[in-house]
Design a protein around this nucleic acid. Structure first.
Lengths: 114, 114
DNA sequence: ATTGTAGTCAACTAAATGGTTGATAAAAGA
DNA sequence: TCTTTTATCAACCATTTAGTTGACTACAAT
């Protein structure tokens, strides 16, 4: 199945959010930067597993990382979150417009009936 | 890894959107109901594969299905899309507030410096 | 009654995902 | 220099995913 570039970005971003551990990391990072160890703290999984989750989030463009001695703090990228809501909302709004249109057709039918 | 019920719903919904075929189906359905065969038309995959994608979307609560003789038309459920944007926006807005707070701290520092 | 249309179920395969352990790198501090 | 902290790489394993083909069900139409 063909996939253009913007498809790939959406694939990676939505897939990244399809995991409760990574969503919890997003939630944590929304309140400020954190290191891998800090992100790992609430979970009973290995540090390596956490590191992989972080890599998934980074590849999805949902986070970036900086340097602070041997630490590599993670930061949320709100623009990427915004791109996702933009995608979803485009179709949600189209659907809602469609429903309204159907409603008015039904109303017109009722009028005619009467 | 533990998952409560609302976690499961988000997992399924985000996972459902992490596939270009299923996103194209959402796009199609935003313009009105369609059958499995109609949804299959733009893709070069088997009818059975399309049927599976539809089941994924239905299990995620992103679509519902009705009956029309031997047809089972699919309909988008905009409320589920809305729940996803609500989740994303909550953390996006928190992050943006956080950034603004940091900005004002930096401004204060500059003031002091001066 | 037979044929055609719409869709699903079951079994299988290939690839990707999420996890593990063990070894290693890179920087800071004793 | 030796040790500790922070994080990653590599190899491996179990499960899930997306696809296939073939058999099947349900309803309509001739």
């Amino acid at each position: 199945m063909r996939s253009d570039e913007s498809d790939d970005r959406l694939n990676r971003a939505f897939l990244a959010l399809a995991d409760p551990v990574r969503r919890a990391m997003i939630a944590r990072l929304s309140r400020g930067p954190a290191t891998v160890n800090e992100l790992a703290e609430p979970f009973s999984i290995s540090k390596q597993a956490v590191s992989k989750h972080v890599q998934v989030l980074e590849a999805a463009g949902l986070i970036t990382r900086s340097r602070d001695a041997q630490r590599r703090p993670c930061h949320l990228v709100p623009e990427t979150l915004e791109a996702l809501t933009a995608w979803i909302d485009a179709y949600r709004l189209t659907a809602e417009r469609q429903f309204r249109r159907l409603d008015s057709v039904l109303d017109t039918l009722k009028e005619t009936e009467r």
